[in-house]
Design a binder for these strands. Structure first.
Lengths: 338, 338
DNA sequence: TTCTAAAACTAAATCGGTTTAGTTATTTGT
DNA sequence: ACAAATAACTAAACCGATTTAGTTTTAGAA
């Protein structure tokens, strides 16, 4: 069992007040007229003993926790985990720690997690919001908590947002399929009211309309299991003629490609494929998969910078803004008819 | 700006003591002889106002934080993120929250993170240890903190461990290649002293020796960037004849397969491939990739159960143990000469 | 020499809970 | 009827920091 040493223990050992120790450790020695002699004495003793203040007590007193709460849909999704990773590294350098949790896009779970974050007194929030959590997010704003929303956002809520141009991304992808000679181009997406999904649908619709083709969509419920998605896509492909598919998310693409393979169809000869949101492994697929790549790095950098801004500023000056980043269409073999 | 209500505010509103409110909220009403009448009065008022105790204050007083610190190598690696995900969900049900961070297998970073966890007074630890962190982990044990170590462990440190049978996994994989007619079978691994890597090497060596073949290893430094890994593997393949490769980790396999593709070699005709640690996408690669699959679910369940045991027990009764789970060889096309 | 201002340091309040050690009112036992 | 036991409740200490409001010492000015 180890004895925990408190600031008072340190003070006692040096025969000074805890106040002096606190001032010195918080860099307020000069400001508080602590003599250099004493400052050095305290500093060297603290270094020697390896004393570190109890952060819980610190948080209680100051109201700051130096913890940022991050809420994503699923931390095991590569898109979210890589953003989480970069943001974590960046904020870590500034002394912040990240607390992240997955919502599964479940409204109730998301609300619960936001409450927990609140109770833990996190200093700021990074949120990829679950559906119908406008109220909770608005409340955070009213308490003037630093909040950054990313990947998707609620147009009615004046948050600072970082998103990609989903409409343009889907448009570019669909146009690319059109230009490569595909004619019955379908979209496989989620039946979701979330902004990013609606925009991807819009981009697809726009390109299809311009080409004079017919829209064809499969909307899948977001709770559907991977194997079931594969079955649904199989059925969808066989139902009507389809010579190309744009998948609106990473995991839809993975399950969908499995469906295509199981049907014995050949990509891109029988059916062209483009995924939204690139996957490290798409380059290694059979054949390699064309994808709309989201600028993960840029998203992360923006999220970090904006959050740090809100954390340092007095919170009132920063007016809400929406950063829209462009996507890159990474053309690989799956969308090029040989 | 929102007023934060404290337990004393609640007490005042009801004209009772904070003590009574605290007892009731902590389910100690009966034990502390609080009348049912008062208990109900407090309960209903708390429900009405939505009061929730400040967890920071709670932690300070009780020394418990209800937070578990989880240290993995890289949260964006699918193996770790899926374990993190399952463990998170399980512990969440018991009221615990997980705090996870990536060490990058960097000794210094890992030490620093352990210190931060300590300062934050986490109640327990789940660790995939970085090299040379024995001392720090031993210290946790001395303070009788609940610690579960997984994926790899230090034989000299009496922790509770959950690992897979790496030697057997690598052995099975190598034998499988032998049985399928490959003769110059190489291992691409990390030049790491970590147990799990040494065991994979042992399993490979055993199978090669039994077959009477010659060992051939490429050991890559763990900090090497993906593109560089690809280059190293290319060079390695061209250097000497190689008709099959066992990759010792997921990401080595991904970079290595890219190398094979860039050399224009055909899997499995020119070169057979097996990966250690399956990847959701291996089934979709060109061709599908045979892999040693780690029982992610079982690992997670064991980690959770053991940790909860340590957390509830008095900590002294639970003697250290090592759970060894078997791997599954998932045979796909990359290792079968047509 | 005496008074004032600045320098150097500290006691005590505070954050918001939990817990110990009581206090007061009501029963119970004899 | 009176002491002892129990029920019902609470004041105050405590966790470990920060910060406010002082206090004491020293230096400089008049």
């Amino acid at each position: 069992m180890k004895k925990k040493v408190s600031i008072r223990d340190i003070a006692r050992q040096l025969d000074v007040s805890a106040t002096a120790v606190s001032f010195v450790l918080n860099g307020k020695a000069e400001e508080q007229k602590i003599s250099q002699k004493l400052e050095q004495r305290i500093l060297s003793h603290v270094k020697k003993t390896g004393y570190r203040p109890n952060q819980i007590a610190q948080s209680l007193r100051t109201g700051k926790s130096m913890i940022i709460g991050m809420l994503v849909e699923d931390i095991s999704d590569p898109f979210f985990s890589s953003i989480a990773r970069i943001v974590e590294d960046n904020l870590y350098k500034k002394g912040y720690k990240i607390f992240h949790s997955s919502t599964d896009n479940n409204t109730e779970k998301a609300k619960e997690l936001l409450r927990i974050f609140h109770e833990r007194q996190v200093d700021g929030y990074i949120i990829a919001p679950a559906p119908e959590t406008e109220t909770e997010i608005s409340e955070l704003l009213q308490e003037s908590k630093p909040v950054i929303v990313f990947d998707r956002f609620f147009p009615g809520v004046p948050t600072t947002n970082v998103i990609v141009d989903n409409k343009e991304g889907a448009y570019k992808a669909t146009r690319h399929l059109v230009e490569n000679g595909f004619a019955s181009i379908a979209l496989v997406t989620l039946n979701s009211e979330q902004g990013q999904m609606k925009d991807r649908l819009k981009g697809y619709n726009k390109a299809i309309k311009e080409a004079g083709f017919v829209k064809r969509c499969l909307k899948i419920h977001y709770k559907t299991a991977p194997e079931e998605i594969t079955e649904l896509v199989k059925k969808f492909i066989m139902e009507d003629k389809t010579d190309a598919i744009l998948f609106a998310t990473n995991y839809l693409a993975v399950s969908g490609i499995k469906a295509i393979q199981e049907l014995g169809l050949h990509i891109p000869h029988d059916i062209g494929v483009v995924g939204f949101d690139d996957n490290t492994n798409f380059a290694l697929f059979s054949p390699s998969i064309t994808a709309v790549s989201q600028p993960v790095k840029a998203i992360s950098e923006n999220v970090t910078t904006l959050l740090l801004g809100l954390l340092s500023g007095d919170g009132k000056l920063n007016k809400p803004q929406t950063i829209i980043l462009s996507t890159d269409l990474i053309i690989r073999k799956s969308s090029i008819k040989s």
